[in-house]
Computed example of a mutant assay.
Amino acid sequence: MEIYQSPFGPVALARYPKRRSETLRAWDAADEYLINHIVEQQLISSDNRLLILNDSFGALAVTLCTGFPELQLLSTGDSWLSQRGAEANMAANHLTTNAVNLCHSLEWPERGQTFKLVIIKIPKSLSLLEDQLHRLQPYITDSTTIVAATMAKHLHNSHLQLFEKLIGTTKTSQAKKKARLAFISADSKAENSDNPYPKSLELRELNLQLQNHANVFSRDGLDIGSRFFLQNLPRNERYRTIIDLGSGNGLLGIVAAQKNPAAEIIFTDESFMAVASAKHNFSINCPNRVASFQVTDCLQGIEKNSADLILCNPPFHQQNTITTHIAEQMFRESKQVLKTGGELWVIGNRHLGYHVKLKRLFGNCQTAASNNKFVILQSVVSKN
């Protein structure tokens, strides 16, 4: 754990899950800027009801609860990892489990409640921010203080225009340590249009109907990588348990289910919105099939030696951070979850070099299909 020297004293913070050679912190300069601004402007009083959106690993919630033990705080976001990180950081700083009410992105409080202060860490996904601002509207009044933050290079006019359109007049701060704040004045006259999410998507070439929440990858159409993977998905009567790892809207698992009618499908993703989308889409497109859905970190909670086939399109971003550690974790855990003879099928951009990592881990890796941009790799769990 690293120590953040907050205005209230040292706060221990760590990313989740912990890794031996962690190079990234659980907070950034935008978190520091936000907290310092809140303290300097005395935005919190003993009766404040505070809402935090997209708190990374609980850095904001844990720090503010340390300084204001009586604070009524609700924190919501779409990342299971951030929620588990928040719980771990609360425990590390000796905060009780009820110090922060952690909710996910589709789980908001009952209407009629309002917040005096709203803090927003601006997410990478503009559509997620749009969905959140629509959901936020019933919980704010003209007297609500709203402050948003991100690193300056990630703050774009599109963010500011969205705040102006859906909440009210928006101004920005000067940059400090390459971070910037946005101050949004809640205006009851701001646009109160219907939330466009979740969005419906028809894939006529596959005869599929999909419904995608705001934070789902490729929610507006079929991306070229997924299209290529779908064209080459395996079919084999040996596949009794198939896992769609990092499932997104569940498209891979749905088509795999259609190709392998005897298989049970398991969908996993760390995004609450992704798993909700996958669950809905499977029920619509495979109404008489059995499947299970789990919001989790890669394959955490999935039984070892239980799967015959794992399908994986690994992400190489975590919010605004480019990283390969998620893919590497997916590969390691897949080897543990697959039965002997079980297969991991991975698609990736050719330049990512996944074949090197897979061959080192599994002892084998072959190309199932490739084109000028993507490669589909297959590794098999051999007998020890």
Results as ranks from 00 to 15, higher is better:
residue 147 V to C: 01
residue 141 T to P: 12
residue 182 A to V: 14
residue 41 Q to A: 08
residue 332 R to P: 02
residue 305 N to A: 05
residue 163 F to K: 12
residue 309 L to S: 11
residue 384 N to L: 11
residue 74 L to D: 12
residue 73 L to Q: 00
residue 164 E to M: 09
residue 74 L to H: 10
residue 319 Q to F: 15
residue 355 H to I: 15
residue 17 P to F: 02
residue 191 E to S: 04
residue 166 L to N: 03
residue 10 P to Q: 12
residue 381 V to Y: 05
residue 291 A to D: 14
residue 270 E to K: 04
residue 10 P to H: 05
residue 143 S to Y: 14
residue 244 D to L: 02
residue 226 S to K: 10
residue 39 V to G: 09
residue 298 C to A: 09
residue 57 F to Q: 01
residue 327 A to I: 10
residue 74 L to S: 09
residue 40 E to D: 10
residue 257 A to V: 07
residue 152 A to H: 10
residue 293 F to I: 09
residue 84 R to N: 04
residue 307 A to S: 14
residue 186 A to I: 15
residue 26 A to M: 00
residue 11 V to H: 07
residue 77 G to W: 01
residue 235 R to C: 07
residue 187 D to E: 11
residue 112 G to S: 06
residue 360 R to W: 08
residue 95 L to Q: 11
residue 65 C to Y: 01
residue 342 G to S: 05
residue 345 W to E: 14
residue 204 R to G: 07
residue 67 G to F: 02
residue 35 I to G: 00
residue 180 R to Q: 13
residue 311 L to I: 12
residue 213 H to F: 15
residue 176 K to I: 15
residue 156 H to S: 15
residue 258 Q to W: 14
residue 244 D to Y: 05
residue 162 L to S: 04
residue 275 V to A: 06
residue 132 Q to V: 08
residue 365 C to I: 05
residue 239 Y to H: 05
